[in-house]
């Protein structure tokens, strides 16, 4: 079958291939249609960010408003605070949540007692399977100023009860610490499996040379998983403006709102709670576009780095 340079021949070939593989195409059809409706549909619907949309309007002959809602967002009195809160949480996550699984994987790799290692590993996955609602409920119950065990312990040590959930200075530590609690085990999977790929001979020759196990961990294990760490770090930093709204919505209350409120919860509030659909969509679109740009530039960066790291 010589490939024909004439487009008509290629078309015939395509037709033949379609006929031959029609069952495959039929199989993929439901997925394609679903994606069209529920993934591309909302993208079309997002055009209302450029309109003054009211319930019942159709998008095609809607009242176009240009960049009105975007200007409204940028000149909103809360805009600075929202950006600051969003960036604070994601930067704190990067600084505090990111290194924990790396260190955990390195240390766990050194535990020679296999059963203990397995046990700790399994237990560390547990919080990943607990829902966000459950984790935030747990925080609320355990940190309850009256009956929570944490405040009981504080009082037993002679301190005074703290109302953690309604406190501005405690909001970010609680958010970050619970984030670490929930994610460190599961995030460590990728590093632990990277560590199993390290050739044993490296450790053997190092210990013949008299390197202590701690030294081996720093000079052999760590450099070996460094490429993985860097890629994960870059991927994480691509999410700078995309702090999830779910956890914030669960932890947010009138008392801590000044530090809790982020861009995505703002969009939820003006869009769904107050019914300003166009405004909420514009806010979402703004972060969506920035996230998309970040991810693509980060991808380029990774390609660049992994290319150079080959040499």
């Amino acid at each position: 079958m010589a490939p024909s340079p004439v487009p008509k021949g290629r078309l015939a070939e395509l037709k033949k291939s379609i006929r031959k593989n029609q069952l495959l195409l039929l199989m993929v059809l439901p997925g394609v249609l679903w994606c069209l409706i529920f993934r591309y549909g909302p993208m079309y619907g997002a055009l209302i960010a450029f309109q003054k949309y009211r319930v019942g309007d159709s998008i095609l002959n809607g009242r176009w408003a240009g960049l009105y809602w975007f200007n409204k967002l940028f000149s909103h009195r809360q805009f600075g605070q929202l950006i600051r809160n969003t960036l604070s949480i994601s930067i704190l996550q990067l600084i505090f949540c990111f290194p924990v699984p790396v260190v955990f994987a390195l240390l766990l790799n050194e535990v020679k007692y296999v059963r203990l290692k397995k046990l700790v590993q399994t237990v560390s996955y547990l919080p990943h399977f607990i829902s966000l609602v459950a984790v935030c409920s747990m925080l609320s119950l355990l940190l309850n100023p009256g009956s929570g065990i944490v405040n009981r312990l504080i009082r037993a040590c002679g301190g005074e009860s703290i109302y953690f959930m309604g406190s501005v200075p405690w909001y970010r530590p609680i958010y970050i610490l619970s984030q670490i609690w929930q994610s460190f085990g599961f995030s460590s999977i990728i590093y632990i499996s990277a560590l199993t790929a390290v050739p044993q001979e490296l450790y053997e020759s190092a210990s013949v040379d008299g390197a202590s196990r701690f030294r081996q961990m720093i000079t052999i294990s760590l450099p070996c998983i460094m490429p993985t760490v860097i890629i994960m770090l870059i991927l994480e930093s691509g999410k700078l403006l995309s702090v999830g709204y779910e956890k914030t919505l669960l932890l947010q209350n009138p008392a801590n709102n000044s530090v809790a409120d982020i861009i995505s919860t703002f969009s939820y509030r003006v869009g769904l709670s107050q019914g300003m659909y166009s405004f909420g969509t514009a806010v979402d679109l703004f972060t969506g576009v920035i996230n998309c740009l970040m991810v693509f530039s980060v991808n380029r960066l990774i390609r660049h780095i992994s290319d150079t790291s080959l040499w």
Binding site: G31, F38, P42, G45, I48, S267, L272, T281, G288
Partner: peptide
């Protein structure tokens, strides 16, 4: 490998991982 339009459909799916219409248009839909 020999499925017709595989590359196009692949990109069609992958694009939605990077960009979405957002919560409110989905809600209206």
């Amino acid at each position: 490998k020999d499925m017709p339009f595989r590359g196009i459909i692949s990109m069609y799916f992958a694009f939605t991982m990077f960009f979405s219409g957002g919560m409110i248009p989905t809600f209206l839909l």
